[in-house]
Design a protein around this nucleic acid. Structure first.
Length: 366
DNA sequence: CATACGTGGCT
DNA sequence: TAGCCAAGTAT
């Protein structure tokens, strides 16, 4: 169809002039770098990814470097990015690429989908952007852009189905599938934004049905916010006379899986009793020094921070199965959640600056 | 189809 | 302020 051809060409052309400079947008593209960037970008704003991508690639420049890394080192490098299963999956994917694909990132969607952590979107993104294949991709940006262009005020599976079908139609018409797909996402990220879209700057404002009907602000409808249960926790700062601090590794599954933390007691019903924990650990405690509150995608976490009074005996780590003593200076090398990083900062054990005190990102549109 | 899974910027 | 949402995937 002529309209679709104009849309596909218009977006690709717009991208060639308005693409943001991002560290993985090299020419030629490195498929391994594309894999890292795409996994890092899952449910994560590009500005956050751009801050962390270079460090990751510097530490693990090739898929072989990542494949032979230790899991704890990969997780530590991922600390603060969230959705930590991505780091484990990426590590496992690198090992599979070395073992099953001779160290080369596969180029077909079918092969890519066999890698852990690589779903429909990520497989399409790598196949199209790194290898130039005409494969469709749909992320949050693309779904919004295509729903608006077609004026389809639908949600859920119907919206997803429409977006994937239209993405496939359009990418098949694009002379450069990579530029079209990336342009579609870039357009959603910088122009066709969820609120206050800048239609006057849009390369497809002419064929856009939502704009013609004045519906660009109401498509798509916002999703209802899911209910959050509250998780209560008590963290204990315990130090010994040799400048070490007691830390423990979280379980391998669930929230913050495999990350390190101050010894923590959790409860769904309210804050754990400090007296009981002090008795269990055989230490006197004072606090709470502070209470840290974090809102996650699916729950609210409230943690009270206590401090053991005086140096603890060295064999205390046997009271907690997954705990060990770590020199305070080495804490920064452990993978911890952003909540734990805050707790360690408050306790004076951590010198890494908080995200809020860091310089803002320097990604600009145009 | 619903839920678990993080974090932080923006309005 | 409190939601909304971000280059989603696995179960």
């Amino acid at each position: 169809m002529t309209r679709d051809r104009a849309i596909a060409r218009g977006i690709a052309r717009w991208f060639s002039e308005h693409a943001r400079e991002l560290p993985w947008r090299t020419s030629p593209r490195d498929p391994y770098a594309a894999l890292v960037a795409e996994v890092m970008a899952q449910q994560t704003q590009i500005a956050r990814v751009a801050e962390r991508f270079g460090t990751f690639l510097a530490r693990f420049p090739t898929v072989h470097d990542l494949a032979r890394a230790r899991a704890g080192d990969v997780l530590a490098l991922w600390a603060g990015l969230g959705y930590y299963r991505r780091a484990r999956n990426l590590h496992a994917a690198a090992r599979e690429i070395v073992e099953r694909f001779d160290g080369r990132v596969p180029s077909s969607v079918a092969d890519l989908r066999t890698l852990p952590g690589v779903g429909r979107y990520t497989a399409g993104a790598i196949a199209s952007i790194a290898f130039g294949r005409p494969e469709p991709i749909v992320d949050g940006n693309v779904a919004r852009v295509l729903l608006r262009i077609d004026g389809r005020d639908v949600t859920g599976a119907e919206a997803q189905g429409h977006a994937w079908a239209r993405a496939a139609d359009l990418v098949a018409l694009a002379p450069d599938p990579a530029a079209f797909n990336e342009g579609l996402m870039e357009l959603g990220a910088t122009v066709c934004t969820p609120r206050s879209p800048r239609c006057s700057d849009c390369p497809v404002r002419a064929p856009c049905a939502a704009r013609r009907a004045g519906l660009q602000d109401s498509i798509p409808k916002p999703k209802p916010t899911p209910r959050r249960t509250t998780l209560h926790g008590l963290c204990l700062v315990v130090r010994d006379r040799r400048g070490r601090c007691l830390v423990e590794r979280r379980p391998e599954h669930g929230l913050w899986a495999g990350l390190w933390q101050l010894p923590t007691w959790e409860s769904r019903r309210g804050f754990p009793r400090a007296e009981a924990i002090a008795a269990e650990m055989g230490v006197a405690v004072r606090g709470p020094i502070t209470t840290i509150v974090r809102t996650l995608s699916h729950r609210r976490v409230r943690v009270r921070l206590y401090e053991a009074i005086g140096p603890a005996r060295a064999n205390l780590c046997r009271a907690r199965p997954r705990s060990r003593w770590v020199a305070v200076g080495a804490l920064a090398g452990l993978g911890v959640s952003s909540l734990q990083a805050e707790a360690l900062r408050v306790a004076g054990l951590y010198s890494t600056p908080s995200p809020q005190t860091r310089r803002p990102g320097r990604i600009r549109a145009d």
